[in-house]
């Protein structure tokens, strides 16, 4: 590494860190604005260092495109990025997510009536959730064709198990006292389910739904590595990697990051509305 490059990188780091260290111990450090500002400064510092490293040292921008180049590529490829987003996120990931969620709810409610079944489903479902299920992608592509239907199926299977396990576990998570109370009212199964057990299970259920948003995106993108029409984020990533158009790959990853945090944020927002009563949500 050349001397000027090293010095300027170090300088950026020191300045960025100095600002953050001061902000973090300042009297205002609990203010919302500071809490947002500090990670943003940190992120910008890293981006600046990245940019400087690529520009001032001999690294080829083809191998490691600087942030400015990625931003430019992003801005110039919006139409392509948008159709890829539609194909992979809207059609593949979100359809699969909804299907998997509905199936998980159906199975959970069916199994819930039998203690025997729930005791079997919890460990088996937990076990399945830890397996590399993305691997079924080539099989589903064979069965359902290379368009988004096969991706939605992969996503549905991937999100099914974590959601199922969380619903079943959540439905079991009522205290003996709460169940006794319902018994003193002579409440039936469905009344207990809707008035007590489902509301009490909501924090668990949303935990499963949040884990599943990330899984859905992973499933939809990775499944495209096994075959897709000539559109989609996974398709674009694998072909662009092949052509060494890494700025395009980065642009797709930016899309994936925005989509991932937006979906997660949306589920978390609904969670906040639904489980406002839970200690973790109270201010």
């Amino acid at each position: 590494m050349t001397g000027p490059a090293l010095i300027s990188v170090l300088a950026v780091w020191v300045v960025g860190w100095f600002i953050n260290a001061r902000l973090a111990v300042s009297r205002m450090s609990d203010a919302r604005i500071i809490r947002v500002l500090v990670p943003v400064i940190f992120g910008l510092t890293l981006l600046l260092i990245w940019e400087l490293l690529v520009r001032m040292t001999g690294v080829s921008p083809i191998v490691l495109p600087p942030p400015s180049m990625i931003a430019e590529r992003f801005a110039n490829s919006l139409p392509i990025l948008w159709v890829d987003f539609e194909q992979t996120i809207v059609k593949g990931a979100m359809t699969g997510y909804v299907i998997g969620m509905i199936c998980a709810f159906a199975v959970a409610v069916l199994a819930d009536r039998s203690d025997f079944l729930t005791r079997g489903i919890l460990p088996v479902g937990g076990f399945m959730a830890a397996l590399p299920i993305v691997g079924i992608a080539p099989i589903f592509v064979k069965w359902l064709g290379s368009d988004w239907e096969s991706k939605a199926a992969v996503v549905a299977v991937m999100v099914f198990f974590p959601i199922l396990v969380n619903i079943v576990a959540g439905l079991r998570d009522t205290s003996a006292m709460q169940r006794d109370l319902m018994r003193t009212y002579g409440a039936g199964y469905w009344q207990t389910l809707f008035k007590l057990r489902l509301p009490a299970a909501m924090p668990f259920i949303f935990n499963g739904l949040k884990i599943a948003t990330t899984l859905a995106l992973i499933g939809a993108i990775v499944a495209e590595f096994f075959g897709s029409p000539t559109v989609g984020m996974g398709f674009r990533i694998s072909t662009s990697v092949g052509r060494l158009a890494l700025d395009m790959v980065w642009a797709e990853i930016v899309v994936a990051a925005i989509a991932g945090s937006t979906l997660y944020g949306a589920v978390a927002w609904i969670e906040g509305r639904v489980t406002f009563w839970h200690p973790s949500q109270r201010k």
């Binding site: 973090a24 990670p39 948003t213 984020m233 990853i253 994936a256 945090s261």
Partner: peptide, 21 residues
Amino acid sequence: MSVMPWAIASQTIPILALAPM
């Protein structure tokens, strides 16, 4: 304050997509 928000955000992003690159 600098790193933790990014570490948490990384869990919501399909960073697996970086693999081929």
